[in-house]
Structures are given as structure tokens and as C-alpha cells.
């Protein structure tokens, strides 16, 4: 029942998205523009500042993720469908998991584009340790989306929600971004620093456990009017 509900929510969102591709295309475009904007700040005489690639990659993920979160829930609000979802005789946490999976899929797609792009533009050896990079990206994205989905969902009913989402989200999510950036930067040098990267993957894992547990626990009372 639980996973079936989550799967149905995911399928519904995917079906809506497949009709217009609105959120995916705008998110991807915005992610690329983020990379472009930051490249102006961190490129000196044709070469990027050391470690800049890691920071740019994660900033692009965080910014485009925020945009996607806002749009996804704006769609629910516009159709007044979130209320209908919440009225459904299904566990609330399952709705959250469905939404979370949707966000993870979306950001995963964005990362498929962003990682090669950053590697190419900044001559970053991001693919030297592919498994470690995937673990870092997965850990960071899960942590970001876990809190992001919860906050975006609860802000649907709030005033000035567009401004409040990044304001609430970023301070809490910055530790995750720091872990992601430092872990990725450890992989970038001439000889990738594996122990450091693994340490940061552990930190990300711990954050993910705390954030997902806390979100599952608080989603129900937060969404009750």
C-alpha cells in the first residue's frame, strides 16, 4: 500500500511532466545558465580557479533544484490538487515519498547533463573515480531533496512562498552542500584523495538518514490544516 501510493504519485507527476516537459526543460536550462554565470567569476586567464568546478557543480544543482521544487508544487497549487491528494485515504508519508522520488529523478537527469558539462568546461577530472562521484552526488541530492520536498510542500499554503523556500532551505541544506563540494573537490586533484571523499560520503549518509527520517516523521502534522 505504502510503496504503491508512492509509485502512483510518482507516475502521476511523470505523466503530467511528459505532456509539457516544462519543469525538466526549464530546470536544465537554468542549471546550464548557473554554470555559465559562475564561470565568469571563477575563470582567470582562461583557466578555472582550483576546486572551482566542484563548487560550481553543487551550486548549479542546489539552485536548479530550488527552481524545480518551486515549480513542481506551484503546479499542484494551481490545480488545487494538493488538497485532493491529501484527502486521499493513503498514508501521508507515502505522498511525501512519491514527491521525493520525483524530485530525485528530476535532479538526477539534471546531473546527467551538469557533470559532463562541468568536466568539459573546467577540465575537471570528475570521472577519475566514477563510483565515489556517484555516491557523493546521490548522497547530496537525497539530502537536498528530502528537506526541499518537505519545505516546498508545506510552503504551498504560505504567503510569499517563492521567497521563503530558498530562505528556509539554504541555511539547513548548506552543510550538505559543503560536504558535497569538499568531497567532490577531493576527487579533483592530480591524485584523487579517496579517504577524504569517503569520509564526506559518510557525512552525507548521516545527513540523509537524519533528514529523511525527520521529514517522514513531520510531513503528516505539517500538512494537516
Amino acid at each position: 500500500m505504502f510503496f504503491r501510493t508512492a509509485w502512483l504519485v510518482l507516475k502521476k507527476d511523470a505523466a503530467i511532466e511528459a505532456k509539457s516537459w516544462e519543469v525538466l526543460t526549464t530546470t536544465l536550462f537554468f542549471a546550464v545558465s548557473c554554470v555559465l554565470i559562475f564561470s565568469f567569476a571563477f575563470v582567470k586567464e582562461g583557466r578555472a580557479v582550483e576546486d572551482a568546478a566542484a563548487g560550481i557543480l553543487w551550486i548549479a544543482i542546489a539552485f536548479s533544484g530550488t527552481l524545480a521544487l518551486g515549480r513542481t508544487f506551484e503546479r499542484e497549487r494551481y490545480g488545487e490538487t494538493l488538497r485532493a491528494l491529501l484527502l486521499a485515504p493513503a498514508p501521508r508519508a507515502a505522498l511525501y515519498v512519491g514527491k521525493l522520488l520525483g524530485m530525485l529523478a528530476l535532479l538526477g537527469l539534471a546531473e546527467l547533463l551538469l557533470v559532463p558539462l562541468v568536466a568539459l568546461l573546467f577540465q575537471a577530472t570528475l570521472f577519475a573515480r566514477p563510483l565515489l562521484l556517484i555516491a557523493l552526488l546521490a548522497g547530496g541530492t537525497i539530502g537536498f531533496c528530502a528537506v526541499g520536498t518537505l519545505f516546498a510542500a508545506m510552503l504551498v499554503r504560505a504567503r510569499s512562498r517563492d521567497v521563503l523556500l530558498p530562505i528556509l532551505l539554504y541555511p539547513i541544506i548548506i552543510p550538505v552542500i559543503i560536504a558535497g563540494v569538499r568531497g567532490t573537490a577531493a576527487l579533483l586533484g592530480a591524485t584523487p584523495d579517496e579517504p577524504t571523499a569517503i569520509m564526506w560520503i559518510g557525512v552525507l549518509g548521516a545527513f540523509d538518514v537524519v533528514f529523511v527520517t525527520l521529514s517522514l516523521w513531520t510531513f503528516e502534522p505539517l500538512m494537516t490544516e
Binding site: 528556509l168 525527520l214 505539517l222
Partner: peptide, 25 residues
């Protein structure tokens, strides 16, 4: 504090979520 001030009705619960996550972090 900002969400309480500008969140409109229901912002008390939003601020509660921030408080809980702040404590957890």
C-alpha cells in the same frame, strides 16, 4: 523569524519545522 513574519496564516507550523530541523542540525 522571517517565516513567522511573512509566511501568513499557518506560518507557526512552518516555523516549528525550521526549529526542529535547526535543532537536528
Amino acid at each position: 523569524v522571517l517565516v513567522r513574519k511573512y509566511g501568513g496564516p499557518g506560518s507557526d507550523k512552518l516555523a516549528a519545522a525550521v526549529g526542529i530541523f535547526g535543532l537536528a542540525v
